[in-house]
Design a binder for these strands. Structure first.
Length: 476
RNA sequence: GUGGCCAUAGUGAAAUGGUUAUCACGUCAGUUUGUGGUACUGACAGUACGGGUUCGAUCCCCGUUGGCCACCCCA
């Protein structure tokens, strides 16, 4: 990606040599900049800092050419959310740092090495949110949403921040959408969240695999961790250094190890499903049954351990089906968080969530060149010649809009040639042309840009005639 | 956070330790002050930043910044 445009050359030239002995003759056509203006005040601007101000590492502009994708994904999220009865919520990007320290767990990677935490001007410790679930829970508590009919179903869309080393599909500011269901412990909730996620990807045509596991409740995990640690201790000579370290700090993380040598040990390691209480196991089985009923394929992955402490019971991750898609294959993650709300000061309230990564979904859509809904494009271009006709053209443009016909124009341009060129470049099927003659006659030329055929029509009837041409006016 | 690769107009490429850094696309203007797609002419725009080596650096070296890749981890 190249750096943006530099500052204009003429300005640079004038400031760069304020005491030039001999001004070289200015090239014909070069814009003339008044010398006195810059020579008199050579102050700050006279010391040009060539360093280009550029994006902070891991930040990205979403350029106009990409908005097409963003809009499509946004509308799909919104559509699914509304179809499933979710209300929209927007929470601030900046939150009290302790929200995430308490919410996500202090030994998680996100909190330990990725979170943007700093003191603001009041010396308050604030955080750029690394995810939104904690914020949604905060809002749920702060606004007494437990007094609303349960479950409360919310969806969001916005930027998240994690200070990581960027690469494709991994940024420091990235966007997530999300579905949250608070106040219901039924496994059908888990299944529904997964179903919504599945629809999001499949309706775009992105093939995905849903990895699913249960992490049980803390008691289950404690029991399991003991077994796991015991098992790994027995094999301590065969594991990598990292696994040994993990075993001390966050034992379940050993299941994430990709080290070749650790694989056999990992494969025979105790599985958490065998240590779940009846309650947790029944819940998990129910979730899987619902998914079976819905025909949603899943992959039972007992090494799936998610990076946030707040998860309980069901956890899942959506992964691209193709192997060769690079390393950023995790498109989305989610799960149940039955204890988070209590942890953040509410009464015990079960909940479940999912957070699809928007950039990664868009990356998939682009890589696979998947079709998206058609864009709303102008149907007609309004061209004019000279000031008198420009006024009429402006009126026509307004009328077209009122009739619901999307039009385009470049009223600041003079030549008809340039205007038709513009219409052509934008592939606009029709053009209205108004010149002196048409103004006097009260007419306008309607040109079919495809065939070049044009006819003169009455100015006042133009929108209706065009409507008929476009087939927008249905025969009665 | 660790390691590696990379950085030339808006985009994609080319070139060189020595005048003015090349080409294509692009953008703007023009080739009849009333007609687009083709053609022609012209203009615009660049060696990321800072330092070092050198008579001389866009080229060699170091640093910074940024991108990409792998790991960590995840979205």
């Amino acid at each position: 990606m190249a750096a943006p445009k530099k500052k204009p050359a003429p300005a640079k030239k004038t400031v760069a040599r304020p005491v030039a002995k001999k001004e070289a003759p200015r090239k014909a056509g070069a814009p003339f900049v008044k010398k006195e203006m810059t020579v008199e005040k050579p102050s700050v601007a006279a010391v040009p800092n060539k360093k280009q101000i550029q994006l902070l590492r891991g930040m990205k502009d979403i350029l106009p050419r990409d908005q097409y994708y963003w809009k499509a994904v946004y509308e799909k999220m919104q559509n699914i959310a509304e179809d499933f009865g979710f209300d929209r919520i927007d929470t601030p990007i900046l939150e009290d740092a302790s929200l995430f320290l308490r919410g996500l767990g202090k030994v998680t990677d996100i909190v330990e090495k990725e979170m943007y935490v700093f003191e603001d001007r009041d010396a308050d410790k604030v955080t750029l949110r690394p995810e939104a679930t904690a914020s949604v829970v905060r809002a749920y508590l702060q606004h007494g949403m437990w007094n609303q009919p349960q479950p409360v179903k919310l969806w969001y869309w916005g930027p998240m921040f994690r200070h990581e080393r960027p690469q494709e599909g991994r940024q420091r500011q990235f966007w997530q959408g999300g579905f949250e269901i608070l106040g219901d412990s039924s496994p059908v909730i888990d299944a529904m969240v997964i179903q919504m996620t599945y629809l999001l990807y499949t309706e775009f045509g992105v093939p995905v695999t849903i990895h699913i596991n249960s992490m049980g409740m803390p008691e289950d995990r404690t029991r399991y961790k003991m077994e796991l640690v015991q098992y790994y201790r027995a094999h301590r000579n065969e594991t990598c250094e990292q696994c040994k370290a993990r075993l001390m700090k966050n034992p379940m993380r050993v299941l994430d190890c990709k080290e070749e040598g650790c694989q056999p040990i990992k494969a025979n390691a105790p599985q958490i499903v065998d240590y779940l209480s009846n309650y947790s196991r029944d819940h998990f089985m129910k979730v899987l049954e619902y998914l079976d009923e819905l025909g949603i394929p899943y992959f039972l992955n007992h090494t799936l351990v998610r990076g946030l402490d707040y998860y309980t019971k069901t956890v899942f991750e959506v992964v691209t089906s193709d192997e060769e898609q690079g390393s950023q294959t995790a498109l989305c993650g989610g799960g149940r968080y039955d204890l988070l709300i209590e942890e953040l000061g509410g009464k015990p309230t079960p909940a479940c969530c999912v957070a699809p990564g928007i950039e990664r979904l868009i990356l998939q859509i682009k890589k696979r060149q998947l079709p998206l809904p058609p864009q709303r494009l102008p149907k007609v271009y309004v061209a004019q010649l000279g000031d008198l006709s420009r006024r009429k053209a402006m009126v026509l443009f307004a009328r077209l809009r009122a009739e619901g016909i999307m039009a385009d124009q470049d009223f600041s341009k003079g030549s008809l040639k340039a205007q038709l060129e513009s219409a052509n470049a934008k592939k606009i099927p029709f053009a209205f042309v108004i010149g002196q003659k048409e103004v006097q006659e009260g007419t306008v030329i309607m040109r079919d840009m495809d065939s070049g055929v044009q006819e003169t029509v009455d100015f006042n009837k133009a929108p209706q005639i065009l409507k008929r041409k476009l087939g927008l006016e249905k025969a009665e």
